[in-house]
Computed example of a mutant assay.
Amino acid sequence: MQYVSLYFEFIKIQLLGILQYKKAFTLGLMAQLASYGAEFFLLWIIINKFNEINGWGSYEVLLLYAFNLCSYALASFFLASPSSRLSMMIKDGTFDEVLTKPLNNFLYLVCREFNSGYISHLLLSIVAMVIALSNLNISMSLIHILFFIIVILSGALIQGAALLLTAIPSFWVVENSSLKDVLFFQMKNFIRYPISIYPTFIQILLTFVLPYAFINFYPAQFFLNKNDFLLFHPLFQFMAPVVGIVLSVIAYALWLVGINNYKSTGS
């Protein structure tokens, strides 16, 4: 913990470096906004076309989208680059540099690879939240606000742990990009909509095996006063923090296993 200020210094350096190329950063931001804005627009067309999806109205589905995108942005600030670059770093030997620093290698890597490119995701998710909450007329008490923050942070832990878990096999199998694509991006597409629209197998998969439903589907029901818990207990709406912490502990433990099994290209 004595190096906390140093970790923040790495993030500061990354941000200052980006500010040296303001035009490139602005163009990248606009491109990301356009891309995810188009996805948001397509989602909006679909849910308005069908009026509701299994009892979920358009603004309720929009809230699911906002929870997912916001927590993804927070997780990706720190873990998107390390998870995508780890394989190449191991292959070309540059991961050795991470291990030579007298710091926690995981914290050093995620802070050094801090990626500000997800600001656009965060901004768009905030806009989506404001639109959804204002149209749903949800009364946000202090308890609601605190739980709202907890849900976002818990979702970030779940998504961050998932990014890390799909990268860790790189310590044994260097070329494994398809694993991340299938287990993270493809499977997470399911939670764009209420998981109650899917077969029982998918519901169980997204609850117990790849617990992405705790990012948005279950906690959203607390704010929406819904009772769409499928085969499961209503207490699941409060389980996101537990799932996030447990997944993060598992991911970090496996990271340590991977580090202990790492063999440098120079060894």
Rank of each mutant, 00 (worst) to 15 (best):
247 L>N: 03
220 A>W: 14
248 S>H: 06
243 V>C: 04
242 V>I: 13
259 I>Q: 03
252 Y>R: 07
259 I>A: 01
260 N>Q: 08
256 L>Y: 10
242 V>R: 00
252 Y>E: 07
248 S>Y: 09
253 A>F: 09
251 A>K: 06
256 L>N: 12
226 K>V: 13
237 Q>M: 09
230 L>E: 13
247 L>D: 07
239 M>S: 06
228 D>C: 13
246 V>S: 04
249 V>P: 01
238 F>D: 03
239 M>H: 03
225 N>D: 15
232 F>T: 05
244 G>P: 02
239 M>Q: 02
244 G>V: 00
247 L>A: 06
256 L>A: 09
230 L>I: 15
240 A>M: 04
261 N>T: 09
245 I>C: 02
247 L>W: 11
239 M>E: 08
225 N>H: 15
244 G>M: 06
221 Q>R: 14
224 L>I: 13
254 L>P: 03
258 G>I: 06
222 F>T: 10
250 I>M: 08
223 F>H: 08
250 I>Q: 06
258 G>H: 02
241 P>F: 01
257 V>Y: 10
256 L>R: 10
240 A>F: 06
246 V>I: 15
258 G>C: 01
220 A>F: 15
244 G>F: 04
226 K>W: 11
245 I>L: 09
224 L>H: 08
228 D>F: 14
231 L>S: 08
240 A>R: 05
233 H>R: 04
243 V>R: 00
227 N>Y: 14
242 V>K: 01
225 N>V: 13
259 I>N: 00
232 F>I: 10
241 P>I: 11
230 L>F: 11
232 F>G: 05
231 L>W: 10
255 W>M: 05
242 V>L: 11
228 D>T: 14
228 D>K: 14
244 G>H: 05
253 A>W: 09
236 F>L: 10
254 L>E: 03
230 L>C: 12
219 P>A: 14
253 A>N: 12
248 S>K: 06
219 P>G: 14
254 L>R: 03
